[in-house]
Design a protein around this nucleic acid. Structure first.
Lengths: 165, 165
DNA sequence: GGTTGTTTTGAACGTTCGTTCAGTTAACGT
DNA sequence: ACGTTAACTGAACGAACGTTCAAAACAACC
């Protein structure tokens, strides 16, 4: 709390005009992040599953890249939530996962995708995409667009139904 | 330190017969985990890249599943290392990544795999596999063998050179 | 059984932490 | 200019933290 106050340029007591306590502040930060995530994501169920998945991959990478601090907190501070707040955050996270799973499910139903278990594929894809935040920094060898393209190709191939031979 | 002492069944002062300070204890835990990881992993460069990759996937999932606490610490406590210790740990982690990258590189060279950038594919695969630890618990709907199989299929398809049509 | 060496205890130290609050300062409509 | 409301300061509180150390307990060997 003292570090936050100092970076904001205020004494620590002043923070308590904005949050009842530290736990609530942490919860509000995470909640705000996940609300923004769910609000920003758009999906058009009338499009082809492959197009919807491509949109998801691009969206996820871009959204997370723009908010490295929020993403870091949302992952690393989970264990400091009270059980009640943890449950609330998990519900939001699950909601987001369900958006991806719906896409994978549609693709399996249409025969475009082939995965044995859409739930597992969902978690695998999200883990893979979120991993970008741990290493990607703008200004390096590759642009974010390059990275998006490469991850999209890997995700696409991983779930696509293979032509039989 | 008091919590560790209490779970060990000892007073807090006694811990300092085993570690000079808390930072060193944390570093030793991480170091031990990564040493064990590198020691346990085996790779046979004379086998086919696809076989080597399959071994890697299976090994990674199994090894991490057997040590949930060590894995948790190795990821969540990174930020509490001093810069010197952080660098040392990063070197070990990079060494492990290089093992996987060597496999992917061999596969690309032989034409079995097709990825634009083996470094990115390496990070993507590891992030995806390590993600298993965040949700898999024995005794659920799927066995660890099932999970290994499904992740292997996704990884395999993601990096495999596609037949052209 | 006594001696030596190793471990553990129990208590204390100086910091840092989250939080509170009386008192001061700033903001603003009238 | 004044009065009211909102925001911030500065100092304090109790608790928890990492660490130290003299004294006590234990272990191992002759």
């Amino acid at each position: 709390m003292r570090q936050i106050a100092s970076e904001v340029g205020v004494q620590v007591g002043a923070l308590y005009n904005y949050t009842p306590d530290k736990q609530t502040l942490l919860y509000d930060l995470m909640r705000g992040h996940l609300d923004a995530l769910l609000e920003a994501f758009t999906d058009d169920p009338t499009r082809k599953p492959e197009e919807r998945l491509r949109s998801f991959v691009q969206f996820h990478i871009q959204f997370h890249h723009e908010r490295p601090d929020a993403v870091f907190i949302a992952y690393m501070e989970l264990r400091n939530l009270t059980p009640e707040n943890f449950s609330r955050i998990e519900i939001l996270r699950k909601t987001y996962e369900d958006r991806l799973e719906a896409i994978l499910h549609a693709g399996v139903a249409s025969g475009d995708f082939d995965v044995p278990d859409t739930k597992i594929a969902t978690l695998a894809v999200i883990a893979m995409l979120t991993g970008v935040n741990t290493w990607f920094r703008a200004g390096g060898r590759l642009s974010l667009k390059d990275v998006e393209g490469q991850y999209w190709q890997m995700v696409r191939k991983a779930v696509l139904a293979q032509r039989r031979d």
